[in-house]
């Protein structure tokens, strides 16, 4: 069943491919009946590639996502927080392992995925291209970003690819710890001194926009949503998830005394400062509960910024990829030793 290294040509979405109509009909019927697809089952080329792309992107995001928080392990404010952060970062890398494993069975080798990530051929989640300059950013990442991840992954756990769905369920159990520990940190800061509350507010201002972008571009601009929903690779649209996110987090943030701002960012990903020295931000005028719909209003994030950062021009893109590449290059002798290729005795088997 080992798929081996497949050329990247074979791993492209191609809507011109004509699949066997009978097999396609049976496949679609199985999906429509809420059936799960297993690694050995027949599946359309574009389903395999779409699923692989999503799982690979997710795996990349897990291991790159460990980087901004990993920076804070040495500076955690207490032993308990340090233990929790080490465990959390370890969890993220473990999620990466599981998701790379799931992706391998869809036809791409792990080595090729790591190589593509560090040479910029594949991407990871946009949200990790932003900096975490204070401890409050660590708190906000665990509350707001992991909160967004849970919402997204709960919907992905309703998907159609069995190995990915089971991985999502495992991951969500651990995300629940990340989220609770994030809530604990945010609650601690917001019950603290004026300086702590201000630090939390500033971190919130940095993360609110990227978190709204977390769910991807608006549905009208999302090309993948349609076919991928038909196959249940995706089960909820970007805008639906974004709305659910705001409904949960906007009232919670306000209850804690956090204001939701529209903030302009400088190229370093920090809130820009006006000529008079004050931060360039205003309260989001649309944040309020719409009684008629039951949903909270909000201003759309800066989608130009989204496309710019995805395109590689974000505050931390280069730094994140460079660190992963450094780790891949420097780790080569370890991998070779492990594989028994470095003049060392071959492994026992």
């Amino acid at each position: 069943m080992s798929a081996g290294v497949t050329s990247s040509e074979e791993l492209r979405i191609d809507w011109k491919i004509q699949e066997d109509p009978d097999r396609m009909a049976a496949f679609q019927a199985h999906i429509d009946a809420k059936g799960l697809v297993e690694a050995d089952d027949w599946m359309p080329h574009n389903y395999r590639v779409g699923m692989l792309r999503m799982a690979e992107h997710h795996a990349n995001s897990e291991i790159v996502g460990a980087l901004p928080e990993g920076e804070w392990i040495t500076r955690a404010p207490s032993l308990r927080r340090k233990l929790a952060l080490v465990a959390k970062v370890q969890d993220e890398v473990g999620h990466g392992q599981m998701l790379y494993r799931t992706s391998q069975d869809l036809g791409k080798s792990r080595d090729q995925m790591l190589r593509d990530l560090v040479t910029g051929k594949t991407r990871y989640h946009n949200v990790f291209n932003y900096p975490a300059p204070t401890w409050a950013d660590v708190a906000m990442i665990q509350w707001l970003v992991d909160g967004a991840a849970i919402l997204n992954q709960k919907s992905l756990a309703e998907g159609s690819y069995g190995p990915y769905v089971r991985t999502m369920k495992r991951i969500n159990m651990e995300e629940a710890f990340h989220f609770k520990s994030g809530e604990d940190m945010v609650l601690t800061l917001m019950s603290g001194t004026k300086r702590q509350r201000q630090m939390a507010q500033e971190a919130f201002d940095r993360w609110w926009g990227p978190c709204l972008m977390f769910f991807g571009p608006p549905d009208r601009e999302s090309t993948k949503t349609g076919p991928f929903m038909t196959w249940r690779i995706k089960t909820a649209t970007n805008d639906t998830l974004r709305e659910a996110y705001v409904d949960r987090f906007a009232p919670a943030a306000r209850a804690l005394g956090l204001n939701i701002h529209l903030a302009r960012k400088n190229p370093d990903g920090l809130i820009a400062v006006k000529a008079d020295g004050t931060p360039d931000k205003i309260e989001d005028p649309l944040i309020r509960l719409d009684e008629s719909t039951g949903h909270w209003g909000f201003t759309q994030p800066d989608w130009d910024e989204f496309y710019r950062v995805i395109g590689g021009d974000g505050p931390c893109n280069k730094q994140r990829v460079a660190l992963r590449r450094f780790s891949y290059e420097q780790g080569r002798w370890v991998r070779q030793a492990v594989m028994g290729c470095a003049g060392l005795p071959p492994s026992r088997n």
């Binding site: 792990r110 080595d111 090729q112 450094f326 080569r332 492990v338």
Partner: peptide, 26 residues
């Protein structure tokens, strides 16, 4: 932040090393 994160040499372009085989699945 640890020194290694600030002081490493970042490579660019294609990797110098050739692709490696994956280990076995268990």
């Amino acid at each position: 932040m640890s020194k290694i994160r600030e002081q490493f040499q970042a490579g660019e372009g294609e990797l110098a090393s050739s692709p490696e085989a994956d280990p076995k699945a268990y």
